[in-house]
């Protein structure tokens, strides 16, 4: 059971991810944007972060980059919408280790999380 930080500006998407992951993992924090995510990472030291890309204040790409600067071993999975694969590639350059597109299917997200946690 790993500690996971959820970062998404949509309360609904956070709730959905929480529902999908809660049976196998602990959700240790929820952030609504990149700035909050960077601060919260320092506070809760999660095993893994699920991070939306398009968010207000600070997007997921910059937030991932900022987290990776301070925590080079951080495990971050980016979540984005269909058709934003170029942004995903930018996020990978910023240090993200996995990526899923919305809408997602619960078992696939869980499998991706397990796979990254096992690395």
């Amino acid at each position: 059971m790993a500690n996971i930080l959820l970062v998404d500006d949509s309360k609904f998407m956070r709730a959905l991810l929480k529902k999908v992951l809660a049976s196998s993992h602990t959700i240790v924090g929820e952030a609504e944007h990149g700035v909050e995510a960077v601060e919260m990472y320092d506070q809760v030291s999660p095993d893994l972060v699920l991070m939306d890309i398009v968010m207000p204040h600070m997007d997921g790409i910059l937030a991932a980059s900022n987290i990776m600067k301070k925590h080079p071993d951080a495990k971050i999975i980016m979540c984005t919408s269909v058709g934003q694969d170029e942004k995903v590639k930018a996020a990978i350059k910023a240090g993200a280790r996995g990526y899923i597109t919305k809408p997602f299917q619960g078992p696939s997200v869980l499998a991706e999380v397990e796979s990254l946690l096992g690395q």
Binding site: D85, V88, G98, Y99, I100, T101, K102, P103, F104, Q105, P107, S108, V109, A111, E112
Partner: peptide, 9 residues
């Protein structure tokens, strides 16, 4: 193929 399975690239 598969580019994504269940939304996961």
């Amino acid at each position: 193929h598969p580019a994504k399975i269940g939304g996961v690239i």
